[in-house]
């Protein structure tokens, strides 16, 4: 049930994308996201989709599996599109009471819909191809300069990796407790809001108890192995850039340059038609 949520979960494979340095992927995701907000033309999407499609192909993850990641944000997606379609002013083609749909509204709705989908798909590519540990390692490396400003970088990244580590465990635990209570006749599916909220108690109490128990155990285990924060701590597998990583950085720069140049010099069909 709960395990159907795929967004943010690592998908094990041995592809080139998986083996890139997490710092490259973090930078790449960052650039990708920013680049989405640098244009207002559909042509940009064509190019971005091609780029994303190429990366998905390289990552060897089934496309259907990635698209499933959109399911949790489906509501948000539809909501954004409807709001945009109804409330953007312009040349009105349909109206009913206060509801108006304009050509510009439809254009904007489609635009926002595509942008949001591509944003989520792009971001999820990072989590699909990078283990949480790798991700926080990369983040820690990249944020290291902030230590000069007394930001506890190591502690933050440790907290992040523990939190990420616990998500699947807690999901599994939820599933197990839910089944155990259903075996005792508990009902999580029917009833009104208040009844449903009340029915959650047999699920939430054991879940919290077990979360605290696990946190406690983990703290003990870390202490038993003399964990004392980031000071002077070395890594077993320090991050080092390989040749593929430099190539990836090059591709990233190429992506930005081509996107910008293309948008500037290819004439706008929209204005030609319009």
């Amino acid at each position: 049930m709960i395990r159907d949520i795929t967004i943010g979960q690592y998908y094990p494979k041995e592809s080139g994308v998986h083996q890139l340095d997490p710092r490259v992927k973090l930078a790449g995701t960052f650039v990708y996201m920013i680049s989405m907000f640098c244009f207002h033309r559909f042509l940009g999407f064509l190019f971005v989709s091609l780029f994303l499609g190429w990366i998905i192909k390289k990552s060897e993850i089934p496309f259907s599996y990635i698209v499933k990641g959109l399911k949790p944000i489906l509501f948000l997606l539809v909501f954004t599109m409807v709001i945009n379609a109804l409330f953007v002013d312009g040349h009105i083609i349909w109206s009913w009471g206060i509801l108006k749909i304009s050509v510009e509204g439809i254009r904007k709705a489609v635009f926002m819909g595509i942008r949001l989908s591509l944003l989520v798909l792009g971001a999820s590519m990072m989590t699909f191809t990078t283990t949480p540990n790798h991700l926080t390692d990369g983040l820690e490396q990249m944020l290291k300069p902030l230590r000069k400003l007394h930001v506890p970088v190591h502690e933050i990244s440790m907290m992040m990796s523990i939190a990420l580590r616990f998500i699947p465990i807690l999901l599994e635990e939820t599933d197990k407790i839910m089944k155990a209570q259903m075996a005792r006749g508990a009902d999580f599916e029917t009833g009104g809001m208040i009844k449903r909220a009340k029915n959650m108690v047999p699920l939430l109490v054991p879940l919290f108890v077990s979360a605290f128990r696990r946190a406690n155990d983990l703290a003990m285990a870390m202490e038993a192995r003399c964990y004392r924060g980031g000071e002077g701590r070395t890594k077993m597998k320090p991050l080092r850039y390989q040749q593929a990583d430099y190539i990836a950085y090059g591709i990233l720069i190429g992506y930005i340059v081509i996107l910008m140049a293309g948008l500037r010099y290819i004439p706008n069909l929209w204005t030609i038609i319009g």
Binding site: K176, I177, K179, A180, Q181, M182, A183, R184, G185, D187, V201, P202, V205, P206, V209, S210
Partner: peptide, 19 residues
């Protein structure tokens, strides 16, 4: 639901379901 009443299932480590 009637079936769940007739077939009782005690899970592995059932003590974690107490609430």
């Amino acid at each position: 639901r009637a079936l769940r009443g007739k077939v009782g299932l005690v899970f592995q480590y059932p003590e974690y379901q107490l609430f």
